[in-house]
C-alpha cells in the first residue's frame, strides 16, 4: 500500500533529523569559517565567554519554543525579563526582603503575567500576537514605573553567582540552562502535555474535538513561557549585578529568531528543543565571531537577518524537493 520503508526505532533525531542535521552542519561551517578568520575564535577564553553568555537567550527560547509549537507567539518575553530584574531589586532594596525571597517573588510575578496572557488568549479569545503585544507594552511600562527609570545595583555575591558563578568548571547559568533543556525536551517528547501541544499547534479545533483541554494547555504554556522569560531576566540582572527597566530590549526578536532558526514553525505543530538549542548557539556564535572579526555592528544586524532567511529558505527548498520527489513517484 505504501512505500514507506519500515523504521524500527524512534530515534530521537528522527522527525526533524534533516533540519537538525543541516543546522548542525551550518554550525560547523560557521565555526570553521570563524576559526580561519580570527585566531581568537578557538581559544579557551572565548569558549568560556560563549558558555557564560548563552543562558539568557537560551532559557527564554525554551518557553518561546513551547508557545510557537502550540501555534501562538509571545512578544512580551523581553518586557517580562526586564520586569523580573526590576522587581527583584524593588523587593530587595525598597522592601528590604531577603534577596532569595525577592528573586522568588519577582519570578512569581512574571509567572502571573504569563497566566494573564494565557487567560486573555483562552478566555477572552484575543489573538496571541495582539495580547502579548499589549502586555509587551504594559509590562515594559510597569518596569519603568516601578524603577522610576533608574538602574539599580544588586551587589550580592550569592545573587551574582547565578549569572557569573561556576560549578564543576562550567558556568552555573549554562548548567541551569542545560538542565532546563533536558527537562523540557523530555516533557515535549514524552509527556502527554508535550504531545498534545503539537496536536494543538497542528489544529486547535481538531485537538478540541479529540478531547484535549486546549485552554488549559495554552494557559500552562504561556505561564511557563513567562516564568522562563523572568528567569532570563534574573540571569541578566545577576550577570550585570544591576537591574534596569531597559534591560532585554528586543530580546523577543532574538529569541524568535533563534527558535525559528532551530526549525520550529511559526504556524505551529512543528519544532523541537534540540533544534532551538542549536539555533541559540548558532546565533550566539555568529554574533561572537563577527565581533572578534571587528565587523561593524550594523553589518552584524545584516548578517543575523541573512542567516535567518538562509536557514528558513533552506527548509523551504528541502520541503519543495521532497514534494517534487513524491510527485514524480
Amino acid at each position: 500500500m505504501t512505500a514507506t520503508a519500515p523504521q524500527k526505532k524512534r530515534s530521537w533525531l528522527k522527525g526533524d533529523s534533516i533540519t537538525t542535521l543541516s543546522l548542525l552542519l551550518s554550525f560547523f561551517v560557521l565555526c570553521i569559517f570563524f576559526a580561519t578568520q580570527t585566531e581568537f575564535f578557538l581559544t579557551s577564553a572565548n569558549a568560556a565567554n560563549l558558555a557564560r553568555t548563552l543562558a539568557v537567550v537560551g532559557i527564554c527560547s525554551i518557553g518561546m519554543t513551547l508557545v510557537l509549537i502550540s501555534g501562538g507567539v509571545d512578544i512580551s518575553v523581553g518586557s517580562v525579563a526586564a520586569l523580573s530584574g526590576v522587581l527583584a531589586s524593588l523587593f530587595w532594596l525598597e522592601f528590604s526582603l531577603p534577596l532569595g525571597l525577592s528573586t522568588f517573588l519577582a519570578l512569581l510575578c512574571c509567572t502571573l503575567v504569563g497566566l494573564l496572557n494565557g487567560l486573555i488568549i483562552t478566555v477572552i479569545k484575543i489573538n496571541p500576537l495582539i495580547t502579548t503585544l499589549a502586555t509587551f507594552s504594559i509590562v515594559r511600562g510597569l518596569a519603568f514605573v516601578i524603577s522610576e527609570g533608574q538602574t539599580n545595583q544588586l551587589n550580592n555575591a550569592a545573587f551574582t553567582y547565578i549569572g557569573r558563578g561556576s560549578l564543576v568548571g562550567l558556568p552555573f547559568s549554562l548548567i541551569l540552562m542545560l538542565v532546563l533543556y533536558l527537562g523540557f525536551a523530555f516533557v515535549l517528547r514524552s509527556s502527554a502535555f508535550g504531545r498534545n501541544l503539537y496536536a494543538i499547534g497542528g489544529s486547535p479545533e481538531k485537538a478540541r474535538l479529540a478531547g484535549i483541554n486546549v485552554s488549559r494547555h495554552l494557559l500552562i504554556t504561556y505561564t511557563l513561557c513567562a516564568f522562563l522569560a523572568g528567569l532570563s531576566g534574573i540571569i541578566i540582572a545577576a550577570q550585570l549585578a544591576s537591574s534596569a527597566p531597559r534591560a532585554a530590549t528586543g530580546l523577543e526578536f532574538t529569541v524568535i529568531t533563534a527558535v525559528v532558526l532551530g526549525g520550529t514553525s511559526l504556524a505551529g505543530g512543528k519544532g523541537s528543543l534540540l533544534g532551538t538549542l542549536v539555533g541559540v548557539i548558532i546565533l550566539r556564535v555568529l554574533d561572537n565571531g563577527l565581533v572578534l572579526m571587528e565587523v561593524s555592528s550594523f553589518y552584524q544586524d545584516v548578517a543575523r537577518g541573512l542567516v535567518l532567511l538562509l536557514a528558513v529558505s533552506f527548509d523551504q527548498i528541502r520541503l519543495g524537493l521532497s514534494r517534487l520527489r513524491r510527485g514524480s513517484t
Binding site: 577564553a45 565567554n49 557564560r52 553568555t53 550577570q239 550585570l240 531597559r246 534591560a247 530590549t249
Partner: peptide, 14 residues
Amino acid sequence: TQEESFRVVGDTLP
C-alpha cells in the same frame, strides 16, 4: 544598554 555592552566586551576580551 548594559547587556549589549556586556556581550560585546565579553566577545572582544578573548
